[in-house]
Computed example of a mutant assay.
Amino acid sequence: MDIDTLDLNLLRIFDALIRTRNVTSAGEAVGLSQPAVSYALAKLRTITGDELFVRSRGGMEPTPRAIHMGVPVRQVLDMIRREVFQTDHFIPSEAERVFTLSLSDIGEMVFLPRLLRRLQTEAPHVTIKSVSLSPADLQEAMASGDVDLAAGYFPDIIKANFYQQHLFAHTFACLVREGHPTIRKRMTMKQFMDATHIVIRAEGRSQEIFERHLEEKRITRRVGLVIPHFMSVPHLLQATDMVATVPRSLAEALVSFGTVCMFDLPFETPKFDLKQYWHARFHRDPANQWLRQLVYESFIQGI
């Protein structure tokens, strides 16, 4: 038998016949007339080289070949209904899967704890994996499904097959160590200009906004240290009288540790939008939809 020429509707009719043992009832089950069912049975007989069903007083009795075919045919049809046509349902409390997120180190420090607190109660068996990729690699990973969601400042994700959702507008703040000798109640423009600054050039793009803003305003600083990571900022500030300008949410998080103080900048600060991004392939995926809502709620709860 050449399976490439097999009409799957024949399997539906065969399954109805094996269940009802009656041509009329089988037709009603699949929405066909009695002649149409009889025609389909004739085709099945030709394909299999077997009578399959024989008329008797009790109805259409299956042959041994038909009985042997009954279970696998039902399994094939059930699998098609379940895996191909049935709408997926995602139950967070029962889910056991890994979601991969692209977050900056700020996202991991500030927003990931909020997300994990929600997961503990709503989806205790879900695992979160955080990755950091280049813009080109990130877009490919999202298209392939290797990354489920990107959340943060990703201005390079601009292709038409990506969706995005605004989370909130963000800005910057300054950090100094507790007990700083000159900066106490507020930061003046003179103090900002006189201070030695730590500049963070991290993988995230948000710091570029601040540096570009300073160039546009023709504000120059004395830069004493350039580093690639935000996480070392509190320790460096604690040991020096330097100043560091960071995204405000990170500043608020670091202040909670009790070793640094936060100040507003003495001039108008630029804003940037934090968003979450996902690929169009997964726009209607129930699991991705649930994750997006959870991330959205976790981000905005800190505003």
Rank of each mutant, 00 (worst) to 15 (best):
V223W: 13
E215R: 05
R222K: 10
V243P: 04
R218G: 08
I209E: 08
F230D: 06
I198Y: 11
I219R: 03
A202F: 04
I227L: 15
G204K: 00
A202N: 04
S232E: 15
D241S: 15
V243G: 12
V199T: 05
V223S: 11
H229S: 09
F210T: 09
A195R: 01
A239D: 00
I219P: 03
I209Q: 11
I200R: 00
I219H: 03
T245V: 15
P247W: 11
L225P: 00
V226D: 04
H229Y: 14
M242I: 00
Q207E: 11
V246N: 13
M231G: 12
L236H: 06
E215P: 03
G224S: 08
V226Q: 11
K217C: 00
A244R: 14
R201G: 09
E211F: 10
T220S: 15
G204E: 10
V243K: 09
H197A: 00
R222N: 09
I219A: 03
H229W: 09
H213L: 02
D241I: 06
L237T: 09
E208S: 08
R221T: 14
L225C: 05
R201D: 13
P234V: 07
E211Y: 14
V226G: 05
A195N: 02
E216T: 00
V246C: 01
F210I: 08
H197W: 06
R222P: 02
R222S: 05
V233R: 12
L225E: 02
K217W: 00
M242V: 00
A244E: 12
V246E: 12
V246F: 09
L225S: 01
R222G: 03
R201T: 14
V233G: 01
A202T: 04
L237W: 14
R218S: 04
V243N: 09
L237A: 12
P228N: 11
I227V: 15
H197E: 00
E203T: 06
I227E: 13
R221V: 08
V199G: 01
P228R: 09
E203G: 02
H235E: 14
P228E: 13
A195Y: 01
L214I: 00
G204P: 07
E211L: 08
T240I: 03
L214R: 02
R221G: 10
I219M: 01
I219F: 06
R218M: 05
F230H: 02
K217G: 02
F210L: 13
H235D: 14
T240R: 14
R212V: 05
L237V: 13
R201N: 14
T245S: 12
T240E: 02
V223T: 15
H197C: 05
I200V: 13
H213F: 06
I219D: 10
R222A: 11
E215N: 06
